[in-house]
Nucleic acid binder design. Structure first.
Lengths: 348, 348
DNA sequence: ATGAAAGCGCTAACAT
DNA sequence: ATGTTAGCGCTTTCAT
């Protein structure tokens, strides 16, 4: 109800008004705002009083126009609702905010359709840097970014041709490692539950290929569209057991997301299946709940917070203008064996 | 590695350059960018070509300075990592993006300490509107916002003194309703698992008070700091049973978050407790997984997406300048009874 | 440590 | 439908 009629009173107060009231030049007020240590204490006091009296709000629009520094960093995520990226997102924002930067959000979705548009919108704000989740899809977009010369950090993936800086890990290697370890533990009957996000699918492909190299070619496979969900894991297991009623060999269900895996565990509990004896489950992400499911979920640990911290740090380093030791960081991953898989499947 | 040395080539190309190349006035290029339908098709073509040739990137900084419209909306959330708000967040961004606005992110944390600073930083960007999650804590902040006259939407709560627009529901009523219904179903032995977020605590208080009115005063209570987590629910139930070994009456565990409730269900499964016969559980939020836990989780449904859509719609309406039918919307909540509680507790 | 001059790149307002 | 003029509110640069 407030301000209802008021046509945005807006801050008619400008820096010049403050300067006049304080009896100094506008430039002095600007210095007070941007590098207060360059202003004498007595002057600072006068300016501070004038600002308080007038209720002045600094206008970075004008400053940025002149200085061509916006202190804005665009952060592009596929989807706000995917908790996999939350830690990275949070870490990036925290670190940037501490350094005096704000985050401009861009949601790209998993389609590359409106990607170009999103990019134009972002560039039109003249951010000092851009942090991408994953890799931009179209080469047009990538070239456009390169052409602008804006510092870019790609995250959550590796690439042979990074646009600029890069912090991630190899999805291929992750998929391979999971296959290698589980096959090595004696598992023979595999199911793969995946959602159709591009990186998850790459892990899945590399997982299946590696199994094939070990002579395991008959992998039961289910894929869903959209975000990973508990429901998918439940339905998936139901379907799996329906289609494969017999067999003594335990299933090893590998999921491209902890959330799906949690669903598999849930359905197993609902059916009274013993995990890992009758059914083993592997997730991906090591999200907060993974260590506390029943039984505790084996998974691939990705340090999302570290990834965010590193991405922000790389960008800030670049913006600070110093020499950069490295511009590509592989933060790796690690397999976490908990109780939903057995160290030695043959011991069952 | 790209752009490593290049001192931000930046887009030296300005609108004026484009205009010159296209053989039109700068204003015509501006029109092409902002209201293309006001430019003749033939002219549009010339301009489009010139833009492509030069690789021009529109600079909204300059435009915003002149027009005092930034097409920027600041969105303040307590924490990126709290999935409770994700749907709202996503819906807001989607709707605003569709209308040509971008989201500037502000993370307030749950402390009111740096709130004032965050607000100054936000205001210095001259957003056209601000969407807040919950209520700003300090009255200084609220007054400052009112004084600027910027359209503000508060979400996820109701208030007697909204700063401006408001979309939410009553946490007091939610807590009361849960107590009323569960007591009505015959439950007598209650536990309350909560995290210390301000709104959750208000639901909890009102829940406890209402139980007291019904003569139930002995509520087992546990509270945790930080974000809701599965682990809390598991530990909580363990602790509860440890401290209360005896009794035949089943526990009714009410949680301020679905995530905690999921933990309780998990611990129950791990202990072989029958839910809801020996132990009943109630969550909050109706997050995606709630309908698919085992057993399915009874909870309080909050339509986060609707809240986000409504908040964005109210703001856009205001920005469009039309008359507003209402500026306060109570989106309500609803109790969802699933299998983790019984319709009639006495039937157990 | 402070000030004066100039202009960043657009768009509002008015003219044609 | 298009053009002209003026200036948004700062900060850069150069002086003092």
């Amino acid at each position: 109800m407030a301000a209802q009629g008021k046509q945005h009173t807006r801050t008619a107060v400008t820096l010049t008004d403050v300067a006049r009231l304080a009896g100094v030049a506008p430039m002095t007020v600007s210095r007070y705002l941007n590098q207060p240590e360059a202003v004498r204490e007595a002057t600072r006091l006068k300016v501070r009083r004038a600002i308080e009296q007038t209720g002045y709000v600094h206008n970075r629009l004008a400053g940025s126009l002149k200085s061509s520094r916006t202190r804005l960093v665009a952060l592009v995520v596929p989807m706000v609702t995917n908790p996999l990226f939350s830690d990275t997102f949070q870490a990036i924002n925290e670190r940037l905010a501490k350094a005096g930067y704000q985050v401009l959000l861009g949601v790209s979705g998993y389609q590359s359709q409106q990607e170009q548009e999103l990019l134009e919108v972002i560039l039109s704000r003249r951010p000092d840097g851009i942090i991408l989740t994953g890799t931009l899809h179209t080469s047009t977009s990538r070239n456009r970014l390169r052409a602008t010369g804006i510092p870019v950090v790609e995250t959550w993936d590796l690439s042979d041709e990074p646009i600029d800086m890069l912090v991630g890990f190899s999805h291929e290697r992750a998929g391979r490692e999971v296959a290698r370890v589980l096959a090595g533990q004696g598992y023979r009957r595999f199911a793969l539950f995946a959602v159709d996000d591009p990186r998850g699918l790459r892990r899945a492909e590399s997982f299946v290929e590696t199994l094939a190299e070990q002579g395991i070619t008959d992998v039961h496979r289910q894929t869903w569209q959209g975000l990973p969900a508990l429901e998918q894991g439940r339905n998936g297991l139901r379907q799996l057991l329906l289609e494969n009623p017999g067999g003594h060999e335990p299933w090893m269900v590998v999921c491209t997301s902890d959330t799906i895996a949690q669903g598999v565990l849930t359905e197993a509990a609902a059916r009274g299946l013993r995990v890992p004896q009758q059914l083993a489950v592997m997730g991906f992400g090591d999200m907060a709940f993974a260590a506390h499911t029943f039984p505790a979920l084996s998974t691939v640990r990705i340090d999302g917070k570290l990834m965010g911290d590193t991405a922000a740090a790389l960008l800030l380093e670049r913006l600070a203008g110093g020499e950069q030791a490295q511009t590509t960081v592989d933060i790796g991953f690690s397999l976490v064996q908990r109780d939903s898989t057995m160290d030695t499947a043959s011991e069952r």
